[in-house]
């Protein structure tokens, strides 16, 4: 059985915990395992924070919308927005962290790549869409799309 739900996300860091808690509650109800839910929470925080902190809107508002689809044991998260496109699949891999390097940037990208089994990005004139799949690799059939 597949369930799905949608929620708008405010362009405000204060809404992140609420959005992630909403996704967590639905994932628990859908029977998604704790490990997969944790991966989903991490990637939601990274992707949404990136839009709120760094996204440059191309319309009156960023119009961030979160959509969840559950087909246990898998979960799929789709985030759409109206910001300048940032194709996570084409972004350069950040250098390894160093105690001497003052730049910590890129860890979010590293975590998203590590904790998804499917990653896709699409952009047209009005919206960008990031799709992140979570699940056991053995049943995902996933990877970078």
């Amino acid at each position: 059985m597949t369930d799905s739900a949608r929620r708008a996300v405010a362009d405000d860091l204060a809404d992140l915990r609420g959005a992630i808690a909403w996704a967590e509650d639905l994932a628990v109800g859908a029977g998604i395992s704790e490990d997969i839910r944790y991966n989903m929470q991490i990637c939601l925080e990274e992707a949404l924070a990136n839009l709120v902190l760094h996204g440059r809107k191309t319309a009156e508002a960023k119009d961030i919308v979160l959509e969840l689809t559950f087909a246990p044991p898998r979960a799929t998260v789709t985030i759409s927005d109206r910001c300048e496109a940032y194709d996570i699949l084409k972004a350069a891999t950040p250098p390894p962290p160093s105690l001497d390097d003052m730049h910590e940037g890129g860890q979010g990208l590293r975590l998203i790549r590590a904790f998804t089994v499917l990653l896709a990005y699409d952009s047209d004139d009005s919206h960008n869409t990031l799709t992140m799949g979570f699940g056991p690799p053995s049943v995902s059939g996933g990877g970078v799309a």
């Binding site: 991490i42 925080e45 990274e46 105690l99 910590e104 860890q107 979010g108 975590l111």
Partner: peptide
């Protein structure tokens, strides 16, 4: 729970 901002805090 820990995500990249938490990692940054530890690194700093």
């Amino acid at each position: 729970f820990m995500a990249s901002m938490g990692l940054r805090t530890l690194m700093v």
